[in-house]
Design a protein around this nucleic acid. Structure first.
Length: 571
RNA sequence: GCGCCCAUAGCUCAGCUGGAUAGAGCAUCAGAUUUCUAAUCUGCAGGUCAGAGGUUCGAAUCCUCUUGGGCGCACCA
């Protein structure tokens, strides 16, 4: 059950007004506290401590309160009965939302023909965890990998392939898809990986090449058979690479992988809607929507639908995607996870979506996050100076885990190594405030001590090991005698549902990750101070502790699973 | 120029309800294993919450200004 919610509701009902309920930072003050007396003293014309004295008897009457007292300037501290805590642990969950939302979640946004780099880490990991949290609370989510698959990079890559294989049929005037076997023209993932950087570099120094790429982009978008055929070949290679990363990161598969290419099919339709509403204007050869408002104090450039060369824009395809989602999913909300540099872009798109009565702006949320920097404060780079690739980073952490295992003379299989490494990588991302930039420090990500993913997994593994060794059937018996370590752990467990709800409400995975760490600290203290299977532990105490260990493990497992991690058998 | 974000311990970060003595981890130092996994636990030390003013019974948190940093401001996605 959600202990906070229960206590808060009971307290409000008893007092007849909504009292602010807090969990004191210093736990010696009690399980909960309220500053209601201080908040209300002024309007009541009373001294806070005196007013608190009037509220105190009512609070003490609540049947789950063992002690309530006035402290400091007028806080009322509340301590719960041990029996109540013990029984609460068995109360059924009320976490499923009775009025669930349909939420379209747009994260990932991988690019065709460009390998994933560190910039894709947050959108993937945070997006996946928010998706899991939303589902856990009973909401219906539809995840979209809105892939970058239709712009100039495609033209550049095709132009580059043409320069390598000018004799391939895709580039001949008489190209006929029926006369070739696409499987004869192989492009490996490793080759494709090099094409875009090479093409991009060449485009910068070779104007003719760039113009040719632009021409190819336009022709590709207009249905040129040869370009579309070669595109389909490397699109497949790219989609396979994306799938492999999604599996490596233990993400849920995307419900839909539809990008700009798909959205662009809606553009003619969208253009008609914009024209019907008389929103589209010509400006310097481009077609735009003026979204500026009188009240704007910030720069608000127009929303560009077609650029002056007639090409589809980023804004146009994102707006078309909203139309697509409205038509196909009719979600209550659409969430976008991208980095903070795209705030203005989404503000523009959302304004036009509102002008078209697709969605009010409050139902379109841009959950932006900061950039990941290297230890120098600069964007994180590999040794060769390139933006670090995601596979390289995963490999780096894998190697560090292997080194650690060798050092401690353990023997763990590859699957376990990968699970531990993934925990290190993902937990490090989840625990940072989503909106802030953060420093990706390889030394600390691969240290595995303290507040890290491996610590979380280790706690679960060790606890589970005790549960597995126990040959008695674990049941909830009556409470015998409870130590403060056991009590603290139970109270921590009872904060789980509030935490998940809070993480959802704030769209903040760090709330969940910090809870995971706090819970593990409580578990480890309990584990250390409260022996379970030792011979000198009395049977009834053992039964009680086994039960606590079991529900602690269950709760921790839920948290670990929400973070998209797996618990190894041993480590 | 206009706008958004940020500044907390040596380092990396919490403090997302304005509350009580500002908390963790790492690093340093001192301890704990005949004991269910030491990737653990316990303890010491470490602070002008960038600076100044204001609101409040109470400010790291809200407001104003200053300083320093990051990012964005139509044809790249």
């Amino acid at each position: 059950m959600n202990l906070y919610k229960f206590v808060s509701n009971s307290l409000n009902k008893k007092l007849g007004f909504v009292a602010n309920l807090e969990i004191p930072k210093n736990r010696e003050f009690g399980d909960f506290s309220t500053n209601a007396a201080m908040v209300m003293a002024k309007s009541a014309g009373k001294n806070p401590r005196e007013f608190a004295g009037e509220l105190l008897p009512k609070i003490s009457e609540l049947n789950f309160v063992s002690d309530a007292s006035i402290a400091g300037p007028g806080f009322i501290n509340i301590k719960l009965k041990n029996d109540f805590i013990w029984e609460s642990v068995n109360q059924k969950s009320d976490i499923k939302n009775q009025n669930p939302y349909i939420i379209d979640m747009d994260y990932g946004a991988y690019n065709v023909a460009k390998s994933l780099h560190i910039g894709h880490l947050r959108t993937s990991i945070v997006g996946d965890t928010l998706n899991r949290i939303a589902k856990f609370l009973g909401h219906k989510t539809i995840s979209y990998n809105h892939i970058g698959d239709w712009g100039r990079p495609m033209g550049l890559v095709i132009a580059y392939i043409e320069s390598l294989h000018p004799d391939w049929p895709f580039f001949q005037d008489n190209f006929d898809l029926k006369k070739i076997k696409p499987e004869d023209y192989k492009i490996s993932a490793a080759e494709l990986d090099n094409y875009y950087p090479a093409a991009s570099a060449r485009g910068k120094e070779d104007e003719d090449f760039l113009n040719h790429a632009r021409e190819i982009t336009a022709k590709l978008q207009n249905g040129h058979a040869g370009y579309n055929a070669i595109y389909d070949i490397f699109l497949k290679v790219s989609l396979d690479m994306m799938d492999s990363i999604i599996k490596k990161l233990n993400m849920m598969p995307f419900d839909k992988t539809l990008g700009e290419r798909n959205a662009s099919q809606n553009l003619a339709n969208l253009e008609k809607i914009l024209n019907d509403k008389k929103l589209l204007e010509d400006s310097e050869g481009a077609k735009i929507v003026n979204i500026r408002r009188e009240t704007d104090t910030e720069p608000m450039p127009p929303f560009m639908f077609y650029n002056s060369r007639g090409a589809d824009t980023y804004e146009a395809t994102d707006l078309a995607a909203i139309l697509y989602r409205k038509t196909n999913d009719n979600p209550d909300k659409i969430w976008y996870l991208t980095d903070s540099r795209q705030q203005l872009h989404f503000k523009q798109v959302f304004r036009v979506a509102e002008m078209l009565d697709l969605y009010p702006i409050e139902n379109l949320e841009h959950l932006y996050f900061g950039t990941i920097n290297g230890p120098g404060g600069q964007p994180f780079k590999t040794r060769d100076g390139n933006v670090a690739g995601l596979t390289d980073i995963i490999e780096m952490v894998n190697n560090a885990v292997r080194a650690r295992i060798t050092e401690s003379e353990k023997n763990l299989d590859d699957k376990t190594v990968e699970a531990i490494a993934l925990a290190a990588l993902k937990f490090n991302d989840l625990i940072h405030d989503v909106k802030s930039d953060y420093t990706f420090d390889p030394a600390s990500v691969t240290s595995f001590e303290g507040r890290t993913g491996p610590y979380i997994l280790y706690t679960a593994v060790r606890l589970n090991s005790v549960l597995k060794k126990s040959d008695t059937k674990i049941k909830n018996k009556s409470m015998v005698d409870i130590t403060s370590d056991e009590r603290n752990l139970l109270v921590g467990i009872l904060d789980f549902e509030r935490t998940v709800q809070g993480a959802f409400d704030n769209r903040a995975t760090d709330i969940l990750a910090n809870y995971a760490y706090d819970l593990c600290q409580l578990i480890n203290t309990f584990y250390h101070n409260c022996p379970i299977l030792h011979e000198d532990v009395k049977a009834d105490i053992r039964a009680q502790r086994l039960y606590i260990a079991k529900i602690a493990f269950n709760t921790l497992s839920s948290v670990i699973s929400l973070m998209g991690l797996n618990i190894p058998d041993k480590m």
